[in-house]
Design a protein around this nucleic acid. Sequence first.
DNA 1: GTTAGAATATGATAAAAATCAGATTTAGGA
DNA 2: TCCTAAATCTGATTTTTATCATATTCTAAC
Lengths: 134, 134
Amino acid sequence: MKAVLFLALHTDEDHKMMVKDVYGRINVPQSYLAKLLQELSKHNVISSARGPKGGFYLSAINKELPLIKIVDVIDGEQRLRSCLLSIKECDSENPCALHHLVGNANSYFIENLENTSIADLIVDVRDGKTVLPL
Amino acid sequence: MKAVLFLALHTDEDHKMMVKDVYGRINVPQSYLAKLLQELSKHNVISSARGPKGGFYLSAINKELPLIKIVDVIDGEQRLRSCLLSIKECDSENPCALHHLVGNANSYFIENLENTSIADLIVDVRDGKTVLPL
DNA sequence: GTTAGAATATGATAAAAATCAGATTTAGGA
DNA sequence: TCCTAAATCTGATTTTTATCATATTCTAAC
């Protein structure tokens, strides 16, 4: 997530960045970051170009993607969507014991991830409304 | 969490249960469950008695404990309380890029864990309002 | 075309979390 | 008092996740 936002902030089709120029800026080990970015690239969440002048970057299309894409690719679609007690049939009709504790908090969060694009976030960062450190 | 709720439902000072009678009911490996229960017992979230006629159980006092205690003992206090981007200084004054996506969803959840006791949950289970399977 | 610089692919290692196993302590009952 | 049944303690093993290393493929520029 940090890496994608960082790339969104600093790259586009004409300005790419290599892993070795990113990992130090966001405090993520180089090799791990490389694997994550490759995974995101493979699933077309971010873009990449090989060879000299190559690197990772976010195209205009990439930047319009909802944030949930990043989560789904890296952590899997179940990560945010499964019941707290891992009960398959848990829903508002047949709620598990913890269901009401979450209430709509989780779906609220998921919907935000679905309705917010990468571009939306960097607007706020550029405006100084939010921060993206380390 | 499942184990504690299960114990809350089936035990008290006069009716204890051993790990071997619990793990199968909640689909948790015996040894892992044993370690978790010992940890909870050590921190007085649940009660235990050694020797014959011994076992784990929830005292009346245990049952009045807020659910957050379980999370804090097992996963640590930071598990639910740290910023999504792991930024130390992230708060509403100085929000990280993802801060508003969570909004009050997380604090809503945490407050529910703080304000709901184990006993509160088993009332609903006993009334058939919620389920506690596997 | 050749070279060099980048991502990509693949598998190995390290660290963390989950799980297992066994020795130790405690307590109830004969 | 002794035996047995339970939790407790400790460390080992397994599994998962994170991290590393390296060979391969692609591509821009000369």
